[in-house]
């Protein structure tokens, strides 16, 4: 059973009224794998990620994570078990400093929070890992700036630092480069390339050069359905995919 995938999604189904946003999707992420999920706008990528993380509950199907079906479990329990999502639209604590944002992520994985003896910012057990996570994604010198005052690119980095600080088994990254300029995208790709050796990832991304650089496997989602899965080269060669997606992107 050693090669059981870390995440195995089976026949996942989600309807929004008449719209089928996730149409019997099967996707695996192996331990150590970076699996990219690509597809046109509105294909259902975020909806899919949200069901794995637990914000949305699927109408049918199974989500096997580390050997257990978590499809009906509360989002916070899934996070406790090692699923960390970064959001396409930045979702941080705007009035907290970058450091406190990450401290919360560390704290979430450090037992219950009914602790009232000391200020959290005075606890080395929280601050040190939080500083390390900020440093790892290049935000070390911005630790004491409020999130609201960070640039868009820095907020995207913070988003990722928070996911990392959860010490997850699987990273669910929903367009980590969303809204970034060319330079920031290149920098973020470099950061992810380093992380890729230590983490398993399900990566939603529109930027094809990033996908090429990072993905071990790529799945293509179109209108809620997986139309192809394979290596980046295979996907690029797939006529189906070109018609549905790459063609229009690369025109």
């Amino acid at each position: 059973m050693a090669d059981l995938p870390l995440l195995s999604v089976k026949r996942l189904l989600k309807r929004f009224g008449g719209l089928i946003a996730t149409d019997h999707v099967d996707i695996d992420v192996g331990a150590g794998e970076t699996h990219a999920l690509i597809g046109p706008n509105g294909a259902g990528k975020t909806t899919f990620i949200a069901q794995i993380q637990g914000e949305l509950s699927p109408d049918a199907g199974a989500i096997i994570f580390s050997g257990r079906d978590i499809a009906r479990e509360a989002a916070w329990r899934r996070a406790q078990q090692g699923l960390a999502r970064s959001f396409q639209i930045t979702s941080v604590f705007l009035q907290f400093t970058a450091l406190t944002n990450v401290i919360l992520a560390v704290q979430a994985q450090a037992g219950h929070s009914f602790r009232i003896r000391r200020a959290a910012v005075d606890e080395p057990a929280l601050v040190e890992p939080a500083q390390a996570a900020l440093a790892a994604i290049g935000l070390g010198d911005r630790a004491h700036v409020r999130a609201v005052a960070l640039s868009h690119g820095e907020q995207r980095q913070l988003e990722l630092a928070m996911a990392l600080a959860m010490r997850p088994k699987l990273l669910l990254l929903d367009e980590p480069m969303a809204g970034m300029g060319r330079q920031d995208t290149a920098r973020m790709t470099e950061i992810l390339r380093k992380l890729k050796t230590q983490y398993s990832m399900l990566l939603v991304e529109h930027d094809m050069s990033a996908v090429e650089a990072l993905a071990d496997r790529v799945s293509v989602l179109v209108a809620g359905r997986v139309v192809a899965t394979g290596s980046f080269a295979q996907i690029r060669a797939d006529a189906h995919v070109r018609a549905a997606y790459l063609g229009e992107k690369h025109r």
Partner: peptide, 28 residues
């Protein structure tokens, strides 16, 4: 004092962004 402790951060975090708190693993 309470506001600055772990407990206080969870309380304030949940007020600011409950969705993110759940994604981090907090039963708010």
């Amino acid at each position: 004092h309470l506001a600055r402790t772990r407990f206080g951060l969870v309380l304030r975090g949940a007020a600011m962004n409950e969705r993110r708190m759940r994604a981090l693993g907090f039963p708010v």
